[in-house]
Design a protein around this nucleic acid. Structure first.
Lengths: 194, 194
DNA sequence: CTTGTTCTTGAATGGTTGCTCATGTATGTT
DNA sequence: AACATACATGAGCAACCATTCAAGAACAAG
């Protein structure tokens, strides 16, 4: 019997995610979201109790479930090997060099901007890092089994390094989106494995 | 004949640097700086034409000249070798684990928060990355000469990787300031060199 | 002491922030 | 047709933002 909702909450989260991704949490205002979605403040706040912060957490989760798997690609597969791992890094570089990908990774941005003051956001970031590390461990283990990397490389240990390296790649890419620089980082990160 | 200034502009920049370091550019208000320094808005704006943004750029430069060399330590010396390089990473980890160092690196934070929208800030960050890379190149070259790292490691190339790795270390440390995790990253980053 | 110059002060500016709430509206049931 | 329910609307709130400015104050030169 109630009046039906005239907008799709998921679409609002999608738009919010994009804004937070591009501009960050603090720089994104409710008015931005109102303009982007056409949903007025009152409706926004009744649909998302907890306001801007709740919407932000939902955006992080949506990013984790929608964007991250897409970026992981073959790296998420159990059979992922060195090529998939390299493909992931190449994809990152390609993104950072394209106008549509310059914003880097929402979760990396969040780690820097919010993790210190927002435990819930930090927890989502930690979950992402853990998943990334697990994918990379698997890929490195497979690669070592196939003789694609030196036997002295510890898959679980070096996966942690690669996680840090790709986070750092995004930091460098933000300040210096230069193809030569970014490709050199990836080339040398892999050169040391063989 | 003019009335003398009652505050030290450099001290204001120091305070501003600390605030921007801890809370970021957007989250730091002029009122914060007024409270921290005791200097009233009018004096602030007349001493620093360009307002908040100019003060931010001065803070970045001050950080580069004051904090960075202190963190680099022996790594900045021409004779720096593997121990100095390792010492730099260990220092980063120690900082990230201490309450006074959790804020990470002002320039990394700036890369993420401002580089995309602030070319002047991005330029300072790029300068920092270049200096870091140069120090690491030298250290790696010395280390290779001394037989501390494998001959197949390219100093200039792998320095780029280490720069990215230490930026990433700071991202991971912000979301997950865990001694085991951070030390494992450093251990494995160096294990692969020998 | 007067004057010129630069400083300090803090109230005030106009704008933005996240958020709320009274009012009106569309619906399914009765 | 009347009602209960949840929704849509957008003006409005207090707080905060970066910034400006008129007024007064401290100094050195004359």
């Amino acid at each position: 019997m109630p009046r039906p909702r005239e907008f799709e909450p998921d679409a609002v989260v999608d738009q919010a995610m994009l804004r937070f991704w591009w501009r960050g949490y603090r720089a994104t205002s409710i008015e931005d979201l109102v303009k982007a979605t056409g949903v007025k403040p009152g409706s926004l706040y009744s649909a998302f109790p907890g306001g801007k912060h709740a919407l932000f957490l939902k955006s992080l989760e949506r990013y984790s479930k929608l964007i991250v798997p897409q970026k992981l690609g073959e790296l998420a597969a159990p059979g992922a090997s060195l090529a998939a791992l390299r493909g992931y890094f190449d994809g990152l570089v390609q993104d950072l060099l394209s106008p549509e990908g310059r914003q880097g990774c929402l979760l990396v941005n969040t780690a820097i901007e919010n993790a210190a003051e927002d435990d819930e956001a930090a927890a989502v970031v930690r979950g992402h890092l853990a998943r990334l590390e697990q994918c990379m461990t698997t890929a490195l283990r497979n690669a070592r089994g196939a003789g694609e990397v030196r036997a002295s490389v510890d898959p679980a240990g070096h996966a942690k390094v690669l996680v840090a390296t790709c986070q750092g790649l995004m930091v460098v890419g933000k300040a210096n989106p230069d193809a030569t620089v970014l490709r050199a980082i990836v080339d040398n990160a892999f050169a040391v494995l063989v």
